[in-house]
Computed example of a mutant assay.
Amino acid sequence: MDFTAGGRLEVRITPSDVGKRVSVRRITEIVDGRPVFADSVGILTSWDEGVLLVTRRDGETVRIAESSLVAGKIVPDAPARRGARAPRATARELQESAARGWPAQETARLGAWTLRAAGGFTRRANSVLPLGDPGVPLTEAAARIARWYGQRGLPAYVQVTTGGEDSDASLAEALGGLGWTAEGHALLRTAALAPIADLPGVEAVRLSREVDTAWLGRYHRTGDLGDEALKVLTGGPSVWFATVPGDGGEEDSGPAAIGRCVVDGRFASFGAVEVDPAHRRRGLASAVMAALARKALDEGASGAYLQVETDNDGARALYDRMGFTTHHAYHYRRGPQSAGG
């Protein structure tokens, strides 16, 4: 790829370009006095404390030291294939993408497991993602997890995937034997992105990179966790917020509908799709998702996924009509010392 401008390598990106698709070149090593280069193309996920994270289309995140960067530029969004099926992905790939799109503010490693905390805002951002081996016996891992969350005044949760080739059914059973109880049962559902983008009503939807007070006022989960929630909501590889203004304008009545989408490589994740009860049955939820899906297509995604609780029959019926099917199920195991946490 051509990085040169006037015959020289140049870094033409800055931290303000986070969320954009970039191409970067870095020095990986010096061999016989000469640098060896590596190139990466993807979404600039973050640029903090001298480290860049670039998420490629396959979902892999490349960690790049700013000091090794020799060239970088913004590149046009890759056109997505408008297929009728979602791209294939394992449960692990989708859970890793979901973690990037709903990022915890504090993490710690326990072998291949990731402990996540975000001030208690949602179980997803305040639970262990157990992808692989914790490196210690399960009884010791469970004790360490309970201590880590207890030090933060949080209940200890482990997110457990069930079904599919990445099933953690044996882990769920083992945790159950240690007294960890099951709760928060949910489904991760996938669909092709293009049919969603073709749904009507997008002309009523406003899209923004920023979340405002009107959007937050409609979102039911923020409550008293505004600061922590905002950090989670605005985090992710490429985040978009959708708003349908109310009949009297947002200032008077609040938004009629809202939604959020995170574009991460091949997939776009959807969440926080909420409609004012006074405006339901007008197709606003599908309009919000259509507008977000069009933006995700523009950024190169071709698949969609979302997470929905198993007992939310209304949402499941809506997503059925949009073509979503269940990829796998998951739930949380709560530690026995976490009652009332």
Score class of each variant (00 low, 15 high):
L44V: 08
L9K: 13
R282I: 01
Q151H: 06
E49Q: 14
G163E: 10
S302L: 09
R92F: 11
R218K: 12
M322S: 04
P76D: 13
V36H: 05
P155G: 07
D2R: 11
V239T: 11
V11F: 15
A186V: 04
S269K: 03
F37A: 00
D32F: 10
E251S: 14
A182T: 11
T234S: 06
S167E: 07
F241K: 06
P35C: 07
P245E: 06
L284R: 00
P195F: 06
Y332A: 01
V136T: 03
Y332L: 08
R81D: 11
R63P: 00
P155N: 03
G101R: 09
L178T: 05
D252K: 10
A329Y: 04
A256F: 00
S40L: 01
A291N: 10
R123N: 08
R109S: 10
G176V: 12
G265V: 09
S16Q: 15
G33I: 02
G340Y: 08
A112E: 08
T325M: 03
P137D: 13
L52C: 02
W148F: 02
F270A: 14
P255V: 06
S67N: 03
I196M: 11
L154A: 01
G7S: 04
T310E: 15
P255L: 08
E228N: 10
D264I: 03
T213W: 11
D276K: 00
E165N: 06
I27Y: 10
G271N: 07
K295G: 09
T162L: 08
D227S: 14
E106L: 15
G254L: 09
N126S: 14
I30V: 12
F121G: 05
I13P: 04
A104D: 04
H328W: 08
P245D: 09
M289C: 10
E274S: 02
A78H: 15
R321S: 11
V18A: 11
A287I: 02
Y219H: 15
A301Q: 11
T28S: 15
R266Q: 12
A257C: 00
V54W: 14
D276Y: 00
E250Q: 09
L175F: 11
V158S: 09
V160M: 13
A104Y: 15
W113H: 07
S253N: 08
V308A: 15
Q95G: 15
G153D: 05
R147V: 09
T61R: 05
T161A: 11
A257D: 00
G314V: 13
D320H: 13
P200A: 02
A291P: 11
L193N: 14
R152I: 03
P336F: 05
F270R: 12
V22N: 08
R147G: 01
Y305M: 07
S170K: 07
Q307F: 13
L154N: 01
A339T: 08
N126Y: 04
A329H: 05
G42M: 04
A141N: 01
Q95S: 10
T114E: 10
T45S: 13
A174G: 10
E173V: 06
L230H: 09
G135M: 03
